[in-house]
C-alpha cells in the first residue's frame, strides 16, 4: 500500500545567479512501513523534496498524495532543531500540548518516549546543551515518535555523529520502525547509511531522480553512471571483513 505518492513535482528557486531547479520533475512512491532512501550529494535537491512531501514547501507544479496526516521529521543537526531555552520535558511535551492531550497522558507518554530512546528520567530537567550529540539526536527521535506518526522524514539524522554513535542511532530507528510499523523517508548522502537502513532507494542529482529500485539490486547493478561513481566513491570508506587492502 502506497503511503506517499509524488507526481511530477517541480520546484524552482530564484537566486542572484539565476534559476535553480531544485526539484525537477520527480515522481516516486513510498510503500507503507518501508524505509525509502533518498541519496545524493549536497545541493541535489533531496532536502527540498523532503520538505515538499512534508508540506513545508509548496511545489511549483505536480502534487503529493499522502495516505496519512501523521507525519514527523528528524533533522541532521540537533543543535538547531532543539530549542536551547527549553528543557527536555518541555521539548518533548510541546507537540502533545498542541494536539490537546491531557496532563496525565502527556506525562505518561513523555516518560515512555524517554524509555524508548534509552535516556534516564533525570534528562527531563536538563537542557539540550547538557547532552552529547548522540543523546540530543535520541531526544529528537523521541520527540518525533511521541505524536504517534505513521511517516517520518529523517533528513541526514546521523551525518554529524561519530561512527559508533551513528550505529546506535540507526539501530534505534530500526527498532522503532519494527515496533510501530512506521514508514521512513531516509535522506542521506552516505550510501553506507542507506544500505544499512533502507529496502528501496532513489538516487538524485541536479533535482532529478536518476534511478529507483531495491537497495540490494541497485548496489550490485547500478544502471546510471552517476550511481556507479557514487558507489565507487566509498572505496576509501568501507572496510571489508577480509581486510583486502592495498597495503
Amino acid at each position: 500500500m502506497v503511503i506517499v505518492k509524488c507526481d511530477r513535482l517541480k520546484k524552482r528557486f530564484f537566486g542572484r545567479a539565476g534559476i535553480v531547479k531544485a526539484v525537477d520533475d520527480v515522481s516516486l512512491e513510498i510503500e507503507r512501513a518501508e524505509a525509502f532512501g533518498l541519496v545524493g550529494e549536497s545541493g541535489c535537491g533531496k532536502t527540498t523534496l523532503g520538505k515538499i512531501i512534508l508540506g513545508v514547501l509548496k511545489p511549483d507544479s505536480g502534487n503529493v498524495i499522502l495516505g496519512t496526516k501523521k507525519m514527523q521529521v528528524i533533522f541532521q543537526s540537533s543543535y538547531n532543531s532543539l530549542d536551547p531555552k527549553m528543557n527536555i520535558s518541555d521539548i518533548l511535551s510541546e507537540g502533545l500540548i498542541i494536539k490537546g492531550t491531557g496532563q496525565g497522558e502527556i506525562k505518561r507518554k513523555v516518560e515512555a518516549a524517554l524509555d524508548l530512546v534509552k535516556l534516564p528520567k533525570e534528562a527531563l530537567k536538563k537542557y539540550p546543551h547538557q547532552f552529547s550529540g548522540g543523546e540530543r539526536q535520541r531526544i529528537a527521535v523521541g520527540r518525533a515518535v511521541l505524536t504517534d506518526p505513521e511517516f517520518i522524514v529523517c533528513d541526514e539524522p546521523v551525518s554529524s555523529l561519530d561512527v559508533t554513535i551513528q550505529l546506535q542511532i540507526l539501530n534505534l530507528l530500526k527498532e522503532i520502525q519494527k515496533r510501530f510499523g512506521i514508514t521512513y523517508l531516509f535522506i542521506s548522502h552516505d550510501l553506507r547509511v542507506i544500505k544499512f537502513m533502507c529496502n528501496r532507494l532513489a538516487v538524485m542529482r541536479y533535482g532529478k531522480v536518476l534511478e529507483t529500485g531495491p537497495v540490494d539490486y541497485i548496489y550490485s547493478n547500478p544502471s546510471h553512471p552517476y550511481t556507479r561513481s557514487l558507489l565507487s566513491s566509498h572505496f576509501y570508506d568501507i572496510i571489508k571483513n577480509d581486510a583486502s587492502l592495498k597495503l
Binding site: 561512527v163 559508533t164 544500505k195 544499512f196 568501507i238 572496510i239 571489508k240
Partner: peptide, 12 residues
C-alpha cells in the same frame, strides 16, 4: 574492536 565493528557494520 568496537570502533572497527561499527565501521564494518556500515560497510558492504
Amino acid at each position: 574492536i568496537s570502533l572497527l565493528e561499527s565501521v564494518k557494520a556500515l560497510s558492504w
